[in-house]
Design a protein around this nucleic acid. Structure first.
Lengths: 246, 246
DNA sequence: TTTCCGCGTTGAGCCAAATCATCCCTCCGC
DNA sequence: GCGGAGGGATGATTTGGCTCAACGCGGAAA
């Protein structure tokens, strides 16, 4: 469920460092003036990540905020006995690290080779204070995340296994569409079956079985293990909302 | 988990309309100057609510935001076949209606006789724009809600029935403590067993059984059906986090 | 091309919580 | 105090998804 800032995309002068940034149209940067954007860019630090490489751990002091420009990340928290809940996946354009706490309450790891920009939280806070439009975008983004979190509570609290997987796939499809700006029928699964299971409150075996069920009902096709084609979007939506026939 | 604004409580001149407001110390109003606070007060409208009385319905145009000063509310969404997920309970001091959408994505109803202040969203947006400190408080509040939502995802996705009820009770206890400012051993349950079940992703029967289990383990005592005394807080915390013995 | 390793799939049996059924208790109104 | 209604508790049974186990397959390295 990507966040989409509002308002017109600021045009940049030739030679601006953010000129070719692939995610600018879909992040908080969208609304920034060339000058301010350059300030922000100078404040940031790019970090490349390999699959499974951690960005930060639960309990680390919350000294940085992040923006993903390439790849995919997962965010999760652990219970004492190893049970894990993935609370979200991050895709290019997503902004991360929003917290009032002194320590991160989650762990973040790369799913794929990724490029991540980080900002000192202290410097970023000053930047936000000096740029009310950024504060507004952050607030909107947080409100958006909150709405998404409520949807996920419905999924985790009340949906069946098949409904959870169908809902998740629709969300991934819609995210791809909002980024590309056109209707899509395919999407990637950059995470493992176990990651999906821990996001959906299921086991990896159940996820596998539900994939088989969606396939057998001709709602989707698995082009490869990590690429899905949606064959019957309306049917998938029906299943996601619990309108499905027995 | 109540939101607690930061910074010193603004002192008000005698005769200020918010002088005796019971929730000012625990809301976004805390940081407002007497003048600005009076503006906000003038913008607001008080509404009394009876138990089960709806405040708004899912799908209504999102034209108002709210602050609760007395009582308790529940927030829920429905699936097509009547399954219900309670996504939160509201207590005095809570602020509500934050959304970027044109329509509310949830329904709100009173649990108890309540007093609710509402503000036209349009007027409130203008007020926020004119008062950056309010925007900052709203952003912090949203970030706080987001952290709470992530905790609830862990609960719904990975905790057992007993752990869910124990976690919920600890949260209620902590909320009471943050409001009163001192250690508590008792708290109220203003909602029905069914409301609790729909919040915790369980059935009312299972909630009932888990209450009996917590009672039998001497972790809590039910003073009445809607008032709980915590007998063993550490034990309750252990159970909430899954550290419990078999 | 072959081999190997780990992820993914599929099957069998089990269990925690849901469902179904009944009873109880508390809180009203009279 | 009495009767009734509705929420809450408890017991019996069912079941969706988990656990445990075996196997398949695809991608990487040689």
């Amino acid at each position: 469920m990507p966040y989409s800032p509002t308002g017109a995309l600021t045009t940049l002068p030739a030679g601006h460092p953010c000129e070719d940034c692939p995610v600018r149209p879909i992040t908080i940067c969208r609304s920034l003036e060339a000058r301010t954007l350059a300030d922000m860019r100078r404040m940031g630090n790019m970090q490349r990540l390999q699959p499974d490489q951690p960005v930060l751990h639960e309990g680390d002091p919350a000294k940085r905020v992040f923006m993903l420009t390439l790849g995919a990340l997962k965010i999760y928290t652990l219970l004492g006995d190893g049970r894990r809940q993935v609370t979200g996946f991050m895709f290019p354009g997503d902004f991360l690290g929003i917290t009032r706490d002194e320590e991160y309450a989650f762990t973040i790891e790369a799913l794929r080779p990724s490029e991540l920009w980080w900002f000192s939280r202290e410097a970023f806070d000053r930047f936000v204070e000096a740029n009310p439009s950024v504060e507004r975008e952050l607030y909107k983004m947080a409100a958006h995340e909150l709405a998404a979190a409520q949807q996920q509570m419905v999924l985790l609290g009340r949906k069946t296994a098949a409904e959870r997987v169908a809902s998740f796939f629709l969300n991934l499809l819609q995210r791809g569409e909002r980024v590309s700006g056109r209707t899509e029928t395919r999407f990637n699964l950059p995470m493992s079956r176990l990651d999906m299971a821990d996001y959906l409150g299921l086991t990896k075996e159940t996820v596998s079985r539900m994939l088989a069920e969606l396939r057998d009902r001709r709602l989707i096709r698995l082009e490869t293990q990590s690429r899905v084609e949606v064959l019957d979007r309306a049917g998938l939506a029906d299943m996601a909302e619990g309108h499905r026939a027995a």
